[in-house]
């Protein structure tokens, strides 16, 4: 039944900002980033290489290419003037990789307890969750594609596990 049709790509370094603030601040941040405002829980909005992932009612994970860091910080600082908020650079706190292929969700479901059927976890859905004993951020960027963020010291653990699951799924009686 299961085929090892899934690929794992490490994603290049990125600018990652943890942003917190109320709705007005969220709107201001989105505008500064050139993203549409969205307060929809567990959904990401992205334009070009920039994305804002809803992680909590006051919390967004902002992602952008590595070389846009300075520009991003400057425009956010300008756009957020007067709004109470928190902006913390966490670019190097975590790493990201992409899982793609028809069996990507099967690989994830080996140790992630969420229902990853497309109806239950549609494209653009994002959330913090767990993979075995590690916290991850999971973002479905296409029907058969997931963006996964993991704290750097947990990445060995998660990647080793994913490889073990891939090996086991490709074994046939």
């Amino acid at each position: 039944m299961a085929d090892a049709t899934a690929w794992l790509h490490p994603l290049p370094g990125a600018t990652r900002l943890s942003f917190c603030g109320d709705e007005a601040a969220q709107d201001a941040a989105a505008a500064a980033l050139g993203l549409p405002s969205s307060a929809m829980p567990c959904r990401a909005v992205s334009v070009g290489g920039r994305a804002s992932l809803w992680l909590g009612p006051e919390e967004r994970l902002l992602l952008a290419p590595l070389n846009e860091r300075a520009q991003l910080l400057a425009s956010l600082e300008a756009g957020l003037a007067g709004h109470a908020h928190s902006l913390v650079d966490i670019s190097q706190r975590q790493l990201a990789f992409e899982l793609r292929g028809p069996n990507a969700s099967l690989l994830l479901n080996a140790q992630c307890p969420l229902d990853l059927a497309l109806e239950a976890f549609p494209v653009d859905m994002c959330t913090r969750t767990v993979y075995a004993k590690s916290e991850i951020v999971l973002w479905r960027t296409a029907a058969d594609r997931f963006h996964v963020e993991v704290w750097r010291s947990f990445s060995d653990y998660v990647l080793t596990l994913l490889h073990a699951v891939a090996r086991e799924l490709s074994a046939r009686p």
Partner: peptide, 11 residues
């Protein structure tokens, strides 16, 4: 309180 917390241990 207008305050937020972010873990930066691994940053």
């Amino acid at each position: 309180l207008k305050v937020w917390l972010t873990s930066t241990t691994e940053q």
